[in-house]
Simulated assay, not measured.
Amino acid sequence: MAVRQRALATLPSLIRSLRKESSPKPPNQALPSLRRAFSLYDQINLIDNVPDDQLRFQGYTDTGFTVNGVEYEGSLLCVGNLPLSWSPKKFSEITADTLSIFQIVRPIPEILILGCGRYTERVDPELQRFIRSTGMKLEAVDSRNAASTYNILNEEGRIVAAALLPYGVSS
Rank of each mutant, 00 (worst) to 15 (best):
P51E: 13
R6E: 15
S85L: 11
C116N: 04
A2M: 13
K137S: 13
S13D: 14
N154Y: 09
D62N: 14
D52P: 03
V70R: 15
R118D: 12
R56N: 11
G117E: 10
R132P: 01
Y167R: 01
M136W: 06
G59M: 04
R132E: 15
N28V: 06
V123W: 10
E110I: 14
L76M: 09
P24Y: 15
L165R: 01
L114H: 02
Y119T: 06
F65N: 04
R122P: 02
L127V: 06
Q29R: 13
L153D: 02
E121F: 09
L84T: 09
W86T: 09
P51W: 15
L112M: 11
R132T: 12
A146P: 02
I15S: 09
V105F: 13
L165Q: 05
N28M: 07
P125L: 02
S171W: 12
L34N: 07
V50K: 07
G69W: 09
T63K: 06
A146D: 06
L82E: 11
N151D: 08
A146G: 03
K25I: 05
Q128L: 09
S87K: 13
N49W: 05
E139C: 00
E121M: 06
S171A: 12
R4S: 11
S22D: 14
Y72K: 12
L165P: 01
E139H: 00
D48W: 02
L164P: 01
L138C: 03
R6A: 10
F102A: 02
D97G: 04
G64L: 11
E110Y: 13
Q5R: 08
T120G: 06
R36D: 04
L40R: 11
S17L: 13
G157H: 00
P88C: 05
P109G: 03
L55G: 03
V79G: 01
S22K: 15
W86P: 05
V50Q: 06
E155K: 04
N49L: 05
P107D: 06
K25A: 14
D42A: 13
I108P: 12
N28L: 12
Y72R: 08
G157R: 00
V141Q: 07
Y150S: 00
S143T: 04
Q103C: 04
R122Y: 08
T134F: 10
D52C: 01
P107T: 03
E71D: 09
P166F: 08
D124R: 08
L84N: 08
E126D: 14
F130M: 03
S100Q: 07
Q58M: 10
T149E: 12
I113N: 03
S23R: 15
P27I: 08
T98F: 02
P166E: 14
T98N: 00
N151R: 06
T98W: 01
R118I: 11
T61G: 07
S33T: 01
D48P: 01
A7C: 08
P27R: 07
D62V: 05
G117Y: 01
L76Y: 00
I101K: 09
S100N: 07
A146Q: 00
I44A: 12
Q128V: 04
V3P: 10
L76C: 07
L11T: 10
I15D: 05
A7Y: 03
M1A: 13
A2L: 14
I104Q: 14
T98R: 07
T98V: 03
K89F: 01
I47R: 05
L84C: 10
S171N: 11
P12T: 15
P27F: 07
E93D: 12
